[in-house]
Design a protein around this nucleic acid. Structure first.
Lengths: 234, 234
DNA sequence: TCAAAAGTGTTGTCGCTACACCCATGT
DNA sequence: ACATGGGTGTAGCGACAACACTTTTGA
């Protein structure tokens, strides 16, 4: 056991080890990630993934959760490791390796909590991500690949959609993530077989066409599907 | 760009960042990993995964390759990242986070090069892995899960089998990795459809039963299968 | 001639894909 | 009434699992 009896190390940052977050969100049209403008040197003002350093007395996976909370106000967010990026010269000032994570959040939740962070954070469609600092484009690409891989193993839509959503929204989400098109009828059939959706008996409001039914996820079924390593091929 | 013009940093180790390797091998009967007895404190003499620290001037993924070469004499080995292990107290002396990798090697190759390393390295069946130091059992379990996941995406058998092998050996390998049994006929049928095997026109020697044909992998087909993200479900 | 593993086909079931029309709602 | 997306069923095909016997070889 480490002890901080003699020296208070709680606020000490490890300066050769950082974390970066690829935060995915879905606005019912496009899959997006949250980018910031750097407010420190080097490359002040350039676009970047939100990231930061790890405290000496902080478990590694707590660091991205902390960063995410600072930025969005959200806690208990779905978050997975993407991988490690450790080329010698990836960071210009000194040797820093970074651990990348991706997070899935509901944009609607984020909107409520926005503005707590001073940095300009913006949602950028994954198909229009600009040149970012350091190796952040590489990290982003790796994160998107991981998401595509994972989406077949776990019913991830759960984390990106609002509490109540239409089946078309769910289908659009999967089409955006996997960059494909699905047949509407087949999609609904497969989904139906999973017993994953609960009919809320509500409908869309104020749409200029037939209003779609709103559904929510059945958390129980969701948990058990994950547990048995279900393959979620849509 | 970092410069080592003024200080020679080539031999400087980063002391809060280590790598650990889960090295898988297959002896035509069981799936095994290579473990060592620690020859340094702490926990001298206990079983551990081979690992080490990273040089300041070394790309992160070069470190496990270097460690593997020191231990086995092998280069150009199939190697993938497992993940990062960074709990505050995982290493007793100080805060060290570790990046774990898994490697797939042909045991037959290893035997030839054995003995170059002073540490006692032993092959241990994955079903009989003992208590190891620190969080190495957690790392091993994560690596095995990754391997099981990956084995469905890439024809990994390639890396674990000798140049020439029988179909039964290949089947046994997959059964060992996934901890299941397959039907012999169905296994062979699916395999045949992939065009992945080349008949070497040779047979087993000195077996006290009907000798099996020896096959080798068709590297071309293998590459193209990987490229198109083939799902290798057996 | 026995033991031990190699090798080989068929059948039923299930899941997948492809495909086109009517329905509800707001303007 | 029209424009817009919501919602529904069927048929053919291919993939998969289950299943048992004959062949080769060495002892």
């Amino acid at each position: 056991m480490l002890s901080n009896k003699w020296i208070n190390m709680t606020d000490t940052l490890i300066d050769n080890l950082s974390i970066d977050c690829v935060i995915f969100g879905f606005d019912n049209e496009e899959l997006k990630i949250l980018c910031i403008k750097r407010n420190t040197e080097p490359d002040l003002g350039m676009m970047a993934l939100p990231g930061g350093f790890v405290y000496l007395q902080e478990d590694l996976d707590k660091a991205p959760a902390r960063r995410l909370k600072d930025l969005t106000g959200l806690t208990n967010v779905y978050m997975k490791e993407v991988g490690t990026f450790g080329n010698v010269n990836r960071y210009p000032l000194r040797r820093v390796i970074t651990i990348a994570y991706y997070a899935l959040i509901k944009i609607s939740d984020y909107v409520i909590h926005a503005g707590e962070d001073a940095q300009e954070a913006t949602w950028i469609p994954v198909k229009q991500v600009p040149k970012m600092v350091f190796d952040h484009n590489t990290i982003f690409t790796a994160a998107l690949l991981k998401l595509r891989e994972r989406v077949r193993m776990e019913p991830i839509g759960f984390n990106l959609l609002p509490e109540k959503f239409t089946i078309t929204e769910l289908q659009t989400l999967y089409e955006q993530i996997l960059d494909t098109k699905f047949d509407k009828r087949n999609f609904r059939k497969k989904l139906a077989k999973m017993n994953l959706l609960i009919d809320t008996n509500e409908k869309q409001q104020n749409v200029s066409h037939r209003a779609a039914k709103l559904y929510s996820f059945d958390t129980k079924v969701y948990e058990s599907l994950i547990k048995k390593g279900f393959v979620f091929d849509l």
